[in-house]
Write a protein that binds this DNA or RNA. Structure first.
Lengths: 188, 188, 188, 188
DNA sequence: GATGAATGAGTGTTCATTCAT
DNA sequence: TATGAATGAACACTCATTCAT
């Protein structure tokens, strides 16, 4: 593994556990087995390390999201798949996912920043996916009548809640959430 | 309002929006209309400002939790009350509540720290309250059969998810969550 | 003498002898008997130390220039006075004067910068004073016919040449320049 | 043009406009279309780039100076020739000439350094040339009686003043200086 | 209770320079 | 010749904190 990769890996772990402001370039360099100036050879600065990590995390995340589209599933199965995908992602890349749902440091939080745009894009896509499932499911009487907007919000809270648990997230929890959702969403 | 209160208020807002590490003592002093040395007259340091805020937040929080105990309610009503209480709290003290559910800065995150202990205590109490409701409800056939542990986790995620929204949290969302829970928990 | 004054004095000497880029904040602090952070308590940064020095140098310089206006002197005496004033200034404040005529560091050299504006203002005033003397002297036949613009340039070169010598500047040199000018300017 | 020449050219321009301390090896490499390690292939370091430029500038300068010696000119013509030569040099090599008369960076300014020695040598030669002209001219009654030393200083100031103007230097100015000198030096 | 002045330790970053190829 | 990768030393600057009043 190249030193640049070491840096990215070390920074990802530290940012995920200590936050952006709580992590120093010295810590990153040490954990990566590199020196501080090397960080500045590969990146323009601490900001760009963080930003570039978040960009690649979102890229991979979005590529996974795309695999969900289509299929002959029921709407509930589509929602179930979304939850299972997120569990899979948090299991395989806990640091990356925690970083993705962690609140941005103030200085990188303006709406024009790439990180914010990616985060917004993620929310938009998830909401689109979920509200689409809900609307179709309601229309076809697969689901009970319910407020689409607020139910979408609720599902988002649950997804991000799972991601926030990081490596501690358990399959049992996701199964339980899914079965709870089935009872509340799917019409008898 | 005394200058000490100004400091507490300013620090609460800044910590809630920028995090502990992203907030400087200079910012706190300026926002409070005070000077930095005055912070050190009223507190032993930045850590203690943060800690003391979290302690008093938890104190008030716990005192509210206590009001919930007892009554002749059904178990679902007790759960509903818990959600409604949290919505009320986040509406009235958004910064405080956000601070309470925000992940601790690395340096104040060891298990022996008062903040961590309060956070653990909060989780324990909430879990106790919720799992108690669930168990009783299941026993009395008010609720469906379900895994107590995972369902408790789910409810915790929903509660903290609401709190994390800060001032943006809406009553409609809480209502929606409650009605969703009713369908999934309460037996037909 | 206050520490702030020490800083200004130390910085003036160092900037005059080593240039802006060749002087470090550490050097300034050490020479001033202070610590680096104190520089930042009294000034916003290295730039402002430099800038504020140059501003006050120009202020004092301009106040001296004003004392020259008026009088019943011949035009040549007015020019002579200007040279003698500059010799007096360089004798009393060699560092300050050297700093004033030294070329600006690239980063503080854009025309909108206060330093540049002061320098421009200085040139303008000197040129105005000198060309005024020359024009009047020519009109009244005190002076030979000569190109005002280029002669002004020449006198400016001589003045700044004297200033550039710093503490090494000698009265004899100025006297010699003045007598040389008399022969070349004043009509027989 | 070889890359080494590119480096020299780029460094000359940058040193002339930004000074030694204000110029980085990175800037030189970029402007030369080279990489930093290449600088160290051709030179031992930044110091040597600067030093070698100054050496070759002085070499060429001295070779020009030599062409002035001899001839059947009057002493004033010899002085005039010196001024015209310098105007020619600054017109053709503004960066090099500016670099030559610019004050040395502190770290290369000790008297044993080649740069300082060249600079001293230049001053010595110019002074020798000029004072020689003056003395002879005075002896032969071509010139007025005047202090040789101070007049030499004055002529040096004028020459370096012209060089300092870099590419902005105008022929008209030199002509004006020469005619001014004629009036003051040459006896009636 | 309150502050202007001051600081040790550290921050992110850049510098001239070197190494391996 | 030429360069991508790497570094020790230093840089300007900020941090939480303290002192004297």
């Amino acid at each position: 593994m190249s030193k640049k990769d070491n840096i990215i890996k070390a920074a990802t772990q530290l940012f995920a556990t200590q936050g952006f402001d709580g992590t120093t370039t010295k810590q990153i360099a040490e954990k990566a087995g590199a020196t501080e100036p090397l960080l500045y050879y590969h990146f323009t600065g601490k900001d760009e390390i963080y930003t570039s990590i978040l960009i690649s995390v979102h890229e991979e995340y979005f590529s996974h999201l795309k695999t969900l589209q289509g299929g002959t599933d029921t709407q509930f199965e589509r929602i179930e798949n979304l939850f299972k995908l997120h569990f899979q992602l948090i299991s395989q890349n806990p640091d990356e996912m925690v970083l993705m749902v962690t609140s941005r440091p103030a200085k990188l939080n303006d709406p024009e920043n790439v990180c914010s745009k990616n985060a917004q894009s993620r929310i938009k896509r998830l909401r689109y996916y979920l509200s689409n499932c809900l609307k179709k499911g309601i229309k076809s009487n697969e689901f009970n009548k319910l407020r689409t907007k607020e139910t979408t919000d609720t599902l988002m809270i649950l997804i991000d809640g799972i991601l926030q648990q990081g490596a501690k997230a358990k399959k049992k929890l996701v199964d339980s959430i899914v079965s709870l959702l089935q009872k509340s969403l799917v019409a008898k």
